[in-house]
Amino acid sequence: MSQIRATLVLLAVFTLLTGIAYPLAITGIAEAVFPAKAKGSLVEVNGTVVGSRLIGQSFTSDRYFHGRPSATSGTDPNDPSKTVEQPYNAAASTGSNLAPTSKSLAEAVAARAQALGPGRQPADLVTASGSGLDPHISPAGAYAQVERVATARKLAPAAVRTLVDSRVEGREFGILGEPRVNVLELNLALDKLPPGGAGS
């Protein structure tokens, strides 16, 4: 009997303490001290939320740098009973989960590489990220797209390359992680470049 009482009392107390008080306390602290981060590091342009700096988004236009392939899917807007490919669906993260010996993976990698040009391409541009929401590409992956973006925007390639240079983030503290470029931030900076002139 005393065991049952102890069970009920401690389960109730710890549910209140760890399941309610703890997350609410952290929420209170985070919203007071790091309000922008607590809400998801959102990026606003002219008062409109254009995304989160932590979450990649789908870019298909030649005028923008593209992020990594994304394996996320979503509901078909024309037929809610179907699921269709929907890259960078930030409401349902997923990787491809395809096997190393998967035929469809090998074909996808080949097709993505060939779309970028002849020969070998940077790995990040031809493989799907784990989350489907990877906000970054490698510096090599960014430089590989400079020509295309410059042509589409009628900019001097040197100007675009300089912009990429300024956006490369090195390893954190000089040692952790990999060098990278945040695609959304790079494209926002790209939109701010004066048309034509900068690289002349």
């Binding site: 993976l105 080949a110 070998r120 790995a123 784990g130 970054h136």
Partner: peptide, 15 residues
């Protein structure tokens, strides 16, 4: 098709 420097990046995150 893939530059060999980074190893297998399918399902991994750049950062």
């Amino acid at each position: 098709f893939v530059e060999p420097v980074t190893g297998n990046m399918e399902g991994k995150e750049q950062r």
